[in-house]
């Protein structure tokens, strides 16, 4: 039996004092991808931030190996005054890896390597942001709307990168509204909405 890379056991997530999701349970095995879906404001980002470790779950248990999760959010975390290669090299050394060439070629960034990130288009920046995931060499990718501002060709590059990552025994949890052509189960967060929202619990906002 393979052990799951990421386990959620009846996890609840809170944002601004409001419980958005309850009883989220999930096992993510190596080679598996999950598409997180749900209407705006349903708690997709909150769930992903909780899994990434940026906020603690308000109930339940979350299990993942230390340093197994690479998170990519709406913002790419690029420094405009550093070049593409310098940006990626920084994340590589932070995560204790060295190879940025593979990541750059996977997202066809080799021509842009000496360009300052501030001079890139939104789609190019996003590609650098996604290339960062390859650089980190983490087994679990937690991605929040990764295809925003990507063109069709870049979305294809991204889908290929995901497929290769899954082929290497990685796993991915992706919040997206478009069809990536992946064989992946859908996790609809609308199903985990609490029965009655505790809107009156104002004190939680201060915790």
């Amino acid at each position: 039996m393979t052990t799951p890379l990421l386990t959620l056991d009846t996890v609840a997530c809170t944002r601004g004092g409001v419980v958005l999701l309850e009883n989220v349970s999930l096992n993510l095995l190596p080679g598996e991808a999950r598409i997180v879906q749900g209407p705006n404001g349903s708690g997709k980002t909150t769930l992903l931030r909780t899994i990434a470790g940026l906020q603690p779950p308000s109930a339940g248990k979350l299990q993942a190996e230390d340093g197994a999760i690479a998170y990519a959010a709406h913002a790419d975390g690029l420094k405009g005054t550093l070049t593409v290669a310098e940006n990626l090299a920084f994340w590589a050394s932070l995560f204790g890896t060295e190879d940025i060439e593979t990541a750059m070629s996977a997202y066809s960034l080799l021509d842009l390597r000496n360009r300052h990130a501030g001079a890139l288009s939104a789609g190019q920046k996003r590609r650098v942001g996604l290339a960062r995931l390859l650089v980190t060499a983490c087994p679990v990718w937690v991605l929040d709307e990764p295809t925003v501002s990507l063109d069709a060709a870049s979305v294809e590059l991204f889908a290929d990168a995901i497929r290769q990552h899954l082929g290497r025994g990685g796993a991915a949890l992706i919040a997206t509204h478009i069809d990536l052509g992946l064989k992946a189960q859908v996790l609809d967060v609308a199903a985990f909405r609490p029965a009655h929202r505790s809107d009156g619990a104002f004190d939680e906002a201060f915790l």
């Binding site: 990434a52 470790g53 998170y71 913002a75 975390g77 994340w91 932070l94 995560f95």
Partner: peptide, 16 residues
């Protein structure tokens, strides 16, 4: 600056 461009989130989830 790190907060605005999102790298603080990424630094906080990094192994360091």
């Amino acid at each position: 600056t790190d907060f605005e461009d999102g790298s603080l989130d990424l630094l906080a989830t990094a192994p360091l």
